[in-house]
Amino acid sequence: MDFPLLVTEAVKDQADPNMIVVAITGMIIVFAALLILTLFLTALPKILDVFNEYFPPSEHGHSAAPVAKQAVLDEDLVAAMAIALIHHRSD
């Protein structure tokens, strides 16, 4: 039996299945799936609260691309660039 008994019985007569039973059972299955999903999602924050106590979210997750470290500029280089900029503007 690979499907709920009611549906299997409903389609027993392959040429003239009981479509009302198929429709009602189908609707119940759809509702059941989404109801379970609703219940799970309602409970999920509480489940994760408990989970987070033991496994706190990592600050170094994969979600963000690593930010490139800002290059540390040599002080002499900064001074040279500043002088060049001043000369450029005075020209």
């Binding site: 759809v30 509702f31 109801l35 999903l37 609703t38 999602l41």
Partner: peptide
Amino acid sequence: PKLILLGA
């Protein structure tokens, strides 16, 4: 999540 039931 309760709004999911509307989709059902």
